[in-house]
Structure formats: C-alpha cells, structure tokens
Design a binder for these strands. Structure first.
Length: 140
DNA sequence: GCCAACGTTGGC
DNA sequence: GCCAACGTTGGC
C-alpha cells in the first residue's frame, strides 16, 4: 500500500466538505499538473493519504482512502487530465501544522517541505508514522 | 498583498 | 529544442 498527500485550499474544498461526501467519496478533480496527475495514476484502491489544508491553515487535518483509481477528470475540457476518488477515513485528533513539520528534522525531506507547490505527492512510511504520531492519530 | 518558485506556452 | 514571457500556487 502506498501513501500520499492531497493538498486543498479549505475555501475551495475542505476536510468538512470531504467528510460530507461519506463513504462514496468524491473526485479529486481540478488537478492540471502533470507531476500530480502521474502520481494519481500510480494510486491503487485502498491506498491512504493525508488531507492537507493549504493557505490559511497549513496543516494536515485528516486521513483519506483512495476509493476509485485514476479515471478521466469530469471537469477537464480535454482528455489529458485524470483523477482518483477519495473518501474521508478519520480526522486528526490534533492537526499537524506545516510549522510543526518543518521543526522536525526527521521530516526535512518531505515533498511538502521541499516542493511546496505540488498539490498531490507521495509520502514515505516513516513520514506517515511520524506525522500520525504528531497528530495523535493511529496510522492504520 | 507580495513575491519566490515553478510549470506551461508559444515564438523562433 | 531552446528560452522568454506569462500564469499560478502557496508561504510569508
């Protein structure tokens, strides 16, 4: 099972919006970046991901699961763009802020830190465990 | 609100 | 195929 991170501006699509979609989940549409799309193509059903609020909040706020593998993005006007569907699994007991992540030297190589503009990115197992621990949330 | 970083586009 | 111009993202 692979691990990922999904970034969203809460004003556009928030964790609460995601939770409201329930187990059916929702398309992670709107991605118009090849690197991000390529990561989505690699995702398998059952993979887990962090849900990250950018801009105002800048924190990991929950865990999601990929519930549908890559398919054409229904909001795209050409066929280059694809997306997966994700559903909320559980919220973080304590949001893990970007500041907290940056303050931990074990997380210095996270894509979130190194390439702040990439909206869909891979997370290593070690990073996953550390961030879950910081968020007082079970990783499984 | 600004600006740095980065990706994409299009002219050559 | 290069590179300048431009647009977007996201942290500060």
């Amino acid at each position: 099972m692979a691990l990922w991170l999904f970034k969203s501006e809460p004003a556009t699509w928030s964790w609460d919006d995601q939770v409201a979609k329930g187990d059916a989940g929702e398309e992670w549409d709107g991605v118009r970046n090849y690197q991000a799309r390529n990561f989505m193509r690699k995702m398998a059903a059952g993979d887990r991901g962090f849900f990250y609020h950018s801009q105002t909040e800048k924190a990991v706020v929950g865990i999601v699961e990929i519930c549908a593998e890559s398919h054409p993005d229904s909001t795209a006007d050409d066929d280059r763009w694809e997306c997966v569907d994700i559903r909320a699994v559980r919220p973080f007991a304590q949001p893990v802020t970007l500041d907290m992540i940056k303050a931990d030297s074990r997380l210095a190589d996270m894509v979130l830190v190194k390439n702040s503009r990439l909206s869909v990115q891979p997370v290593t197992e070690r990073e996953w465990e550390i961030v879950c621990e910081m968020g007082k949330t079970k990783p499984g």
